[in-house]
């Protein structure tokens, strides 16, 4: 068990370190992540959604369906816990 775990983390870690090397420099304002999609959010969020907090704007509007999914996840977890933990009645026991 432990051996397999260590083997897996060595493999994963190796891959991750291998991948880090060619990543865009950390915090580079011109990296693709910062220059392709997100600038439009920063520029337009206020105008289009009238919300000063860009995160809220994107969360609630541009990617509103993610948020809907997020709500559904919480709901799922809640209902799931009810389903699992509700005890059986009439002393049926486990």
């Amino acid at each position: 068990m432990k051996v397999i775990a260590i083997l897996i983390i060595v493999l994963t870690g190796g891959l991750l370190i291998y991948g880090v090397e060619e990543m865009p420099d950390w915090g580079d304002p011109n990296s693709p992540a910062s220059s392709h999609v997100s600038p439009k959010y920063i520029q337009e969020a206020l105008e289009k959604t009238a919300t000063p907090n860009m995160v809220t704007a994107v969360l609630g509007d541009y990617r509103g369906y993610d948020t809907m999914g997020e709500t559904a996840v919480i709901f799922t977890a809640g209902i799931g816990c009810i389903l699992m933990l509700r005890k059986k009645r009439k002393g049926e026991g486990d």
Partner: peptide
């Protein structure tokens, strides 16, 4: 509005969802 003066908000948005998902998973 200068793009360079604000941090990229998109990953934050995604992570708000991810945190909630992670806590929901923990709960279940």
């Amino acid at each position: 509005i200068d793009v360079a003066s604000y941090i990229n908000p998109l990953p934050h948005v995604l992570m708000l969802t991810a945190i909630v998902v992670s806590i929901a998973t923990t709960g279940v």
